[in-house]
């Protein structure tokens, strides 16, 4: 037995959730008394040996035409083949958009027990038992699987990552993919310079209290000083003030950053469902009765148009001094 981890890269670069996946795999392997092997695809511009700082000794880099663009079937077939070459029975995948497209296909191909939406390290590896979030963060439950192969998909930023020492050995590998269903990617459009929400450590979010899309400058300013992603509530995205990709909440993106700053958002139960896993929540609202204050750690009752610029300034000053 061994642990196989999908080390996603974005145009050759690793991100924090790649390291989080590596560390999750290394710790799981330790619990099982075995090794974890990382698999990454395509040309890597980062030095892949840095993965060693998160506990992995071995990374396999798979290159070639099969992996130039994303195809969930090809990634799943490759992970399966790496597992069969190395006695892998446990797969770790970060719950990114790509990870979520790979996992169910891999589960069918390897007849694995698949546990998704995981928020903690396993409590046992025999049988594999791990806590996951359900009812859009309104509950948790332990799942276990007795299947010979098993896959864990964890929620990005839910278990965290700490950098240590070490250097991984990186080797090119080869796998057989076979015939898989085809899709043709015609265009990839990534917003430059924005922090994608699922992996953001800090998020600044605006609601209807912002009164209109023209007022988003102050949200962006605060996000910039905090090195945060920007988000919005459902009504804001429905009215077209902000793109759907920024909608956080039950039917948008569920996030769990270290810091969530909610500005002019009342805190409807559907919104809270998507953000309540945030480690620290700040609510700024002119209505002292806003339900968000019941879910927040820190609250300011006040006019966002006055409070937010002041807060941005104060954080700037703090950062300059520290």
């Amino acid at each position: 037995m061994s642990v196989i981890v999908y080390l996603e890269n974005w145009e050759g670069k690793f991100k924090k959730n790649t390291f989080e996946a590596a560390q999750y795999a290394a710790k799981t392997a330790e619990m099982m008394g075995t090794d974890a092997i990382g698999v990454t695809f395509g040309e890597i511009s980062d030095d892949a040996s840095v993965i060693g700082k998160y506990g992995l000794n071995k990374v396999i880099n798979l290159k070639g035409d099969d992996f130039k663009e994303f195809n969930n079937y090809k990634i799943a077939a490759a992970l399966k083949d790496v597992a069969s070459q190395n006695g892998g029975d446990t797969f770790i995948i970060s719950g990114t958009f790509n990870g979520k497209a790979v996992a169910p296909v891999l589960a069918i191909n390897t007849e694995a027990g698949l546990i998704t939406n995981v928020t903690e390290m396993p409590s046992s590896t025999s049988p594999l038992t791990v806590k996951r979030s359900v009812f859009s963060s309104k509950g948790f439950v332990e799942y276990s699987t007795e299947a010979a192969n098993r896959i864990i998909v964890f929620i990005p930023n839910s278990v965290g990552v700490t950098e240590g020492e070490g250097s991984a050995e990186v080797n090119e590998g080869s796998v057989s993919i076979g015939e898989v269903p085809a899709v043709n990617v015609t265009e990839v459009d990534r917003v430059k310079g924005k922090i994608p929400l699922p992996e953001a450590e800090r998020v600044v979010s605006g609601g209807r209290g912002m009164k209109g899309p023209d007022n988003w400058g102050m949200i962006e300013d605060l996000a910039e000083v905090l090195d945060a992603g920007t988000a919005c509530s459902k009504p804001v995205s429905d009215m077209g003030w902000r793109p759907h990709t920024e909608h956080v909440g039950q039917t948008g993106i569920a996030i769990n950053p270290d810091l969530y700053v909610a500005i002019g958002i009342s805190g409807a139960i559907q919104h809270l469902a998507g953000v309540s896993n945030s480690k620290t929540i700040v609510a700024i609202n002119n209505d002292a009765e806003a339900p968000f204050f019941k879910a927040a750690d820190y609250g300011i009752v006040g006019d966002a148009f006055e409070v937010v610029p002041k807060l941005t300034k104060a954080i700037k000053k703090f950062k300059a001094e520290n």
């Binding site: 958009f97 990839v188 459009d189 917003v191």
Partner: peptide, 8 residues
């Protein structure tokens, strides 16, 4: 996709 969209 993370941070954007993909057409296919």
């Amino acid at each position: 996709i993370d941070g954007g969209k993909e057409k296919l």
